[in-house]
Amino acid sequence: MQRVNMIMAESPGLITICLLGYLLSAECTVFLDHENANKILNRPKRYNSGKLEEFVQGNLERECMEEKCSFEEAREVFENTERTTEFWKQYVDGDQCESNPCLNGGSCKDDINSYECWCPFGFEGKNCELDVTCNIKNGRCEQFCKNSADNKVVCSCTEGYRLAENQKSCEPAVPFPCGRVSVSQTSKLTRAETVFPDVDYVNSTEAETILDNITQSTQSFNDFTRVVGGEDAKPGQFPWQVVLNGKVDAFCGGSIVNEKWIVTAAHCVETGVKITVVAGEHNIEETEHTEQKRNVIRIIPHHNYNAAINKYNHDIALLELDEPLVLNSYVTPICIADKEYTNIFLKFGSGYVSGWGRVFHKGRSALVLQYLRVPLVDRATCLRSTKFTIYNNMFCAGFHEGGRDSCQGDSGGPHVTEVEGTSFLTGIISWGEECAMKGKYGIYTKVSRYVNWIKEKTKLT
């Protein structure tokens, strides 16, 4: 034993070699072989497995989906700052455009905790909710729209109204504003409101030439003092309507412009014939205590009207009353817009006519005020429907199939267009061939041609 100890002390290297040989010859039971080890760690190889990531292109799944990435790591994937920024906006807080917040056709661009709407022409605001041009839906104005110097929408209202708090709607500024039905039992019968379409306001006024200088022999019209197929109006439903009495009662109609003036057809009036105007009328054979009678003290036909040349060209006249009318729910003026808007309103496509005229061709006159909704007829169809001249200051309205029309005794009465609950004068009943005849239409004086003249002559002093 002493000898062994001496050998170990003198030859430590020998001992180490012996131990190493023993270990190498022993069977290893701690580690699995290569094949079995792979069965336990069965993990798919990654895209760049075996390579240094710093030297390969980034992978979106590896960089940002398996674990949260930084902007720089995302930049490695896209290799483009702009594309990385677009991805980053949604990656950080989701897609803010998912709810489609942009209105009126706006395009949404996502941002971090926010979004941006790219608005089409005519709109602005956070969600493109603000109209900035009158060309689109009248700028959301209830009545009139004008573009300011910086191309912003400025709404306005006709006389007797003021802008509401929203700067879009119009509200009454006087007790009985024009064009409004205020009798409670008839307010439910107000005709369907007309909503502004998209309009090209630059070209809204037709490029028409008034044929002022045409000389033409007097034409022989049949029954051209021209509501057939209409309905009984309720008291106060058309408070701007008046009836004219002269040699015979209810020979023509008219509309209240203001307390002192009536507008009617020029062919209705004769110099030297006494005319009485009755406002607030409903049943011409009954006294309903809503009527107001006034005498006409002055007749002003349009300066281009000449019955000797043509009885229905420039067929418009103004009547001055001896005493002002007292405005109330049964006696209310009709609204008159400017030339541009009167023309736009007419193009809405349908209007209402009213009167006490004959209820059928050569038949009896109506006792109760009649009204009828009539569609506008395109000019080409209008011209083809008659052998008589249709001037540019006239328009056609009615039904091709016949059966409904204005008729004798309705002449001078109103053709009105309702705009968001307020009625505007767009025409004056003038003439036609018979009444409600198939293929024939009622012919009306186009008020847009005469609004400046009306307003100039009827100013209240």
Score class of each variant (00 low, 15 high):
S11R: 11
S11W: 07
P12K: 10
G13P: 09
L14A: 07
L14V: 11
I17M: 14
L23V: 13
L24N: 03
L32S: 14
N36T: 08
N38P: 08
N38E: 13
I40S: 15
S49K: 10
L52G: 09
E53R: 05
E54N: 05
L60R: 08
M65R: 09
C69S: 05
F78Y: 15
N80G: 13
K89H: 09
Y91P: 06
D95M: 06
D95E: 06
Q96K: 12
E98D: 09
C117I: 00
C117Q: 00
W118V: 01
P120Q: 07
G125P: 00
N127I: 05
L130Q: 15
K137V: 10
C141K: 00
S148G: 07
S148R: 07
E159P: 05
G160W: 02
Y161C: 01
L163D: 01
K168L: 12
C170A: 01
C170S: 01
P177Q: 01
V181M: 12
K188H: 07
T190H: 13
A192Y: 12
P197F: 10
Y201T: 14
N203T: 13
S204T: 10
T218W: 12
V227R: 11
E231G: 10
K234G: 10
F238G: 02
F238W: 08
P239V: 02
P239R: 00
Q241A: 15
V243A: 13
N245S: 10
V248N: 11
G253Y: 05
G254C: 01
V263W: 02
T264W: 01
A265I: 00
H267M: 03
C268D: 00
C268W: 01
V269H: 03
E270F: 08
E270H: 06
I275G: 03
V277G: 01
A279G: 04
H289T: 13
K293F: 13
K293R: 13
V296L: 03
R298Q: 07
H303K: 09
Y305C: 01
A317Y: 00
E320S: 02
D322Y: 02
P324K: 06
P324D: 04
L325W: 04
L325H: 00
I336W: 00
D338K: 05
Y341D: 06
N343Q: 09
N343S: 14
F345S: 01
L346H: 04
S350H: 12
W356P: 03
G357W: 07
R358S: 11
F360N: 15
H361D: 15
V368M: 13
Q370N: 08
L372S: 14
R373Y: 06
L376V: 08
L376G: 03
V377F: 02
V377R: 05
A380M: 09
L383N: 10
R384E: 11
S385H: 14
K387L: 05
I390R: 08
Y391D: 14
M394F: 09
A397L: 00
H400T: 13
H400V: 12
E401Y: 08
E401I: 11
E401C: 05
S406L: 14
C407H: 04
Q408R: 10
T417A: 05
T417M: 04
V419I: 14
E420P: 01
F424K: 00
L425R: 00
S430G: 11
S430Y: 02
E433M: 07
C435I: 03
A436P: 09
M437L: 15
G439R: 10
Y441V: 13
R449N: 15
N452Q: 11
I454N: 01
K459Q: 15
